[in-house]
Structure formats: structure tokens, C-alpha cells
């Protein structure tokens, strides 16, 4: 049974349909990469999963159980098990690094403070930010903010982690720091759905690649198959472009 499954999911903003029937599944401990041109709906898939964009049709299931996004309780339970790292970090600008990482564990999960703070320090050390606990987001570089966002998501002890182009806003020299962190998580067996443009990274880390275009899944399969021998003409054109870079 897949850990996370989308079946024929449709979603949009007003008259614009961004997802036109997306089906995909992620097994427990699997890393699935969502690739495709901008505007193909990759980020919207993650937003739908977090209940930030409503789906107009289709079904999302966790451990085989369908989620009713209109039910507050089910939405809470879903968000309790999943965490997302946004492309633009979306850190709380009025809080320190420590404040950002510990807010939800302390106030929402109501875990004991000593434990939460110790874990936050450990996570920040893991993403290479030991000693920056008292800094504010505007005092950090983009790469550092992105890693705070990753630590903030991990502090919630999610079963499933959603990552939205976590390296696209970074300077090239910072990309590796962030990718290292994700490699570690993959090695530890976290279920992950990753939107990425870094084909080298996708090839290395993903168990499966799902290629999207215009709100639909075009191809899905192991990285070697999808990246090197795409079956469809659309995928061949896309990878022909991105892999030449």
C-alpha cells in the first residue's frame, strides 16, 4: 500500500485548471521527484497535499485512507503527519531561527520545552547552522534561511516531507549544503516528494521520477529510465533541454 497516493486529482484557481487529473503514489521511505517545465503544476501538487489549494476532483489517500480536505479534523491530522519546505522559505520574519523551529512543536504539539529545544539545536547543527539559533531570518543568507526552513519542517517529526524547489532560490555554491541535508534524510528513510530542477541531484537521490506537463503526468519510472530513455516526445524535448545545461 502506498504511503501517499493521489488519484485523478484536479485543482485550479478560478477558471484556470492547473492540475488536470494527476495520479501518483509514493511508497513508505521512497523518494519521488516531480520534474517538468515551470507552470506544469508541480508546486500545486504539493499545495493540494498540504490543504493550501483545494482540489476540485479526485482523491488523496494516506496509508490507503482517503482524506476529506473539507473536514477540519482530517485536515489537521493530515498536516500533523506531513511537513512542507517552501521554495521561498516562508520563515516567520519576527522570530529568531530558534523561534521559527520551535514554535509549532511547543505551541501546537505541546511537546516538552527542554526536549523540543534540544532537538531544534540538534537539527540546526545537522543542517550546518549551529550557533545561529538567535539570528533573525533577515540576518541570514538565502541558503541559510532555506536550511532553517528544512529544520523547521523536520522539528515537526513528519512522516512525509514535501520539498518545493528548495535549491532554485540559492546561489550555486549554497546548493550543495542543502542537497547534502536532503541526501542524509533520504538515507534515513524519510518518505519524500521533491519538486526539483536539479537533474543530477534527482538522478542521484530519487527512487522514482514523475514528469509533469500542463497539469498532467506524462511519464513515471526509475530515474535512469525517465531521464535517459524517455518514451514520450514531450519528455524527450524537456530532458533534451535541461540535461544539456
Amino acid at each position: 500500500m502506498p504511503h501517499l497516493e493521489l488519484r485523478d486529482v484536479r485543482a485550479g484557481y478560478g477558471a484556470l485548471e492547473v492540475l488536470r487529473g494527476v495520479s501518483l503514489a509514493v511508497d513508505r521511505g521512497e523518494v519521488v521527484a516531480l520534474v517538468g517545465p515551470s507552470g506544469s503544476g508541480k508546486s500545486t501538487v504539493l499545495r493540494v497535499l498540504m490543504g493550501l489549494t483545494p482540489l476540485s476532483a479526485g482523491q488523496v489517500s494516506i496509508d490507503g485512507r482517503p482524506v476529506d480536505f473539507r473536514s477540519r479534523g482530517e485536515l489537521r491530522a493530515l498536516r500533523d503527519r506531513m511537513a512542507i519546505v517552501f521554495q521561498q522559505y516562508n520563515l516567520f520574519q519576527n522570530m529568531t531561527v530558534m523561534g521559527n523551529v520551535t514554535l509549532a512543536p511547543l505551541r501546537i504539539k505541546r511537546w516538552p520545552r527542554a526536549e523540543v529545544e534540544a532537538e531544534a539545536r540538534a537539527l540546526l547543527a545537522k543542517v550546518g547552522l549551529a550557533g545561529r539559533e538567535d539570528a533573525y531570518p533577515d540576518e541570514l543568507s538565502g541558503g541559510q534561511q532555506q536550511r532553517v526552513a528544512i529544520a523547521r519542517a523536520l522539528a515537526l517529526r513528519p512522516e512525509i516531507l514535501l520539498l518545493d524547489e528548495v535549491t532554485s532560490a540559492l546561489d550555486p555554491e549554497l546548493v550543495n549544503e542543502v542537497l547534502d541535508t536532503i541526501r542524509t534524510l533520504a538515507a534515513e528513510g524519510m518518505t519524500m516528494l521533491i519538486v526539483s530542477h536539479e537533474m543530477g541531484f534527482v538522478r542521484e537521490i530519487a527512487d522514482r521520477v514523475v514528469m509533469m506537463d500542463a497539469g498532467e503526468v506524462i511519464e513515471a519510472g526509475p530515474p535512469a529510465e525517465i531521464l535517459d530513455n524517455p518514451r514520450t516526445e514531450r519528455a524527450r524535448r524537456f530532458f533534451g533541454k535541461v540535461l544539456r545545461h
Binding site: 516562508n90 519576527n94 509549532a104 501546537i108
Partner: peptide, 24 residues
């Protein structure tokens, strides 16, 4: 986006307003 980040962490609207939005 900061409000959406709070939503994704199950932080309620009143808490989000008081702890995140108002101070800014």
C-alpha cells in the same frame, strides 16, 4: 506565504495573527 507556512503547521488563525502577523 508566512501565513500559509503557519497553516501548514496547524497553527490556528488567531495564533497566527497574534504571534506572526501582528508583530510584523
Amino acid at each position: 506565504q508566512q501565513i500559509e507556512a503557519a497553516q501548514a503547521m496547524n497553527i490556528g488563525r488567531l495564533r497566527t495573527t497574534v504571534l506572526i502577523v501582528l508583530p510584523q
